[in-house]
Every structure is written in C-alpha cells, then in structure tokens.
Amino acid sequence: MEQEARVSIERSAVIPAGTINLRGRRRFGERIIETIVFICGAISIFTTTAIVIVLFQEAWLFFGSPEVDLTEFFSTTTWQPETGRFGIWPLMMSTLITSIIALLVAVPLGLGAAIYLSEYASPTARGYLKPILEVLAGVPTVVYGYFALTFVTPVILQGLLGKENVEIYNMLSAGLTMGIMILPLVASMSEDALSAVPRSLREGSYGLGATRLETSVRVVVPAALSGILAAVIVAMSRAVGETMIVALAAGAGPRFTFNPLQAAETMTGHIARISGGDISYASIQYTSIFAIALVLFFMTLLLNLLSGWVVRRFREVYE
C-alpha cells in the first residue's frame, strides 16, 4: 500500500498534472488506412459488377443483331454460327449430360468414401487418407483432360464397348473423368459434415442396439444432410463450369444428341474453342460466347445460391 502510494506520488512528480490529454486524438493515418482496407475488401464487388456488366453488354449486342432471336436462342436445337442459327440447346444438353454423368460417379463414391473415413476408419488411417484425397482435388483439370483422352476413352471405353461404338471424343469419357475430378470435393465436404455430427447422437444410437451401419445411415447421415446436399450442389456447379476436361475429351462441334458415346461440345468447351482461335471482335461469334457465358454464369450462380439456402434451411444445430 505504502509503496504504491509512493509510486503514484513519484509519477505525479515527474509528469505534472494536467499535461496528459487522455482524449482520443484524430489520427489521419488511421483514417487513410481504414479507407485503403475498405477498398481492398470492396474490390470483390468491382469484380462481380464488371462480370455482370461485361456479360450483359456483349450479350445485348448479340441479341440485338439481326441474325439472333431470343426465343430462337432458348428453343431451337441447332447452333451453327456460319448459317446464323443460334439455338443454345445442343451446348446446354451436352453440359447437362456430362455433368449428370459426373455426379452419378462422384456422389455415390464420394459419399461412400466420406462415410468410411468418418465412421469406420481409425484416426491414423484418416490422417493419411484424407490428404491423399485432397491431392487428387489439387490436380489441375487439364491433367484430367489428358487422362480422359489418353486413358479413359481408348483403354476403358473402347476396350469395354468396342472401338466402333465409341467415338474418340465422347461425352461419357469426359463425364466419367469429371466425376473422378469432383469425387474428392464431395468426399471432403461430406466428411466435414459427418464429422461435425456430435458424438452423443452416435452413442445414443449404439445404446439402442443399432449396428454401426444403421447408426451411420439412419442417424449420422440424416443429421449431416444439409452439408451433404450442399456438397452435391457445389459439385454440380463445378461440373457445369468445368472447361478443360470437356474441351479436350468431349469433342469440338455442337451437336444435339442424347447418346453419351458421341461427341458433342459443351458450353464451356465452345467458349474455349472459339476464343482460343483468332476471331475478330466485331464478329457475331465473338459476342455469342458472351451470351453463352451469361447463361453459364446464371446457372452456376443459381446453384451456389441454392447450396447456401440448403445449408441454412436444413441445418441441424447441436449446441
């Protein structure tokens, strides 16, 4: 007590009372930094705005040109820029077919792998296996494109179904490879969702005499459903927007077909091929890729918003 008192006396001896202003000072440096930091955060808004403006502007030019008609664009099934016929369905259909094949591969396998990792594997095994799956997710997509063209099509598909039945470029090979590409994404996201389910639910289920399978499938999976659905939707959006695999393996040239063993160009593949060639900025082909990109942008945006909504709507909250 005495000592403390002395310290405060000494202080007041050194700094005469009334010279310290404890009121906050205006710091211009801080204000400037705050502005800079805000701008950095807001640049993302600029990106989105720029994307929307650019897509709409060029798509407007496209739909405004005499060859193009909005209803024809969404209702006819021929895409032939040379003859002035622009119906988006051939491109859209092959995008849908490849994506659905990819999901048919990735969702069951990814979910199975996730259930195994989260419910069956020992912590040590999980520690090794999950990073390996994530390596698979980090492989650039152009490498998968190479894989589809040099292995999946010639060795697997033409080996199993016969060379005459399978075209060199085909949607099935692109879809299967894309499935392998998004499998780790589905597995990883679903595993996160499954691991987040509290232990007490599993204990409760075991206590009622359920087996490990019954616990996993009837208790843990339903509890983690929002996360799993979100994973599936995100995977769908990745598949729709994927470019390199379809550009290399699905074929060059729009074609309206439901046969996955045939070649048909997807939306992304068409954008990549047209913009990769030398095109004049004034041509209708140039503006047409913006119209396709606009449709693509809204498809993926819708899927992303849907996944956010699913997570909020179906989330089960445990303390």
Partner: peptide, 17 residues
C-alpha cells in the same frame, strides 16, 4: 463467397473484355 464459385472461364471472359 459467390465469386469463389464462379467458373474460371467466366474470369477469362472478363479478362478478355
């Protein structure tokens, strides 16, 4: 969060324009 889900080819289109 939505931008992270935009397909990379759309960024290419943005860069082109």
């Amino acid at each position: 969060n939505n931008l992270a889900g935009v397909p990379s080819i759309i960024y290419g289109i943005l860069g082109l324009a």
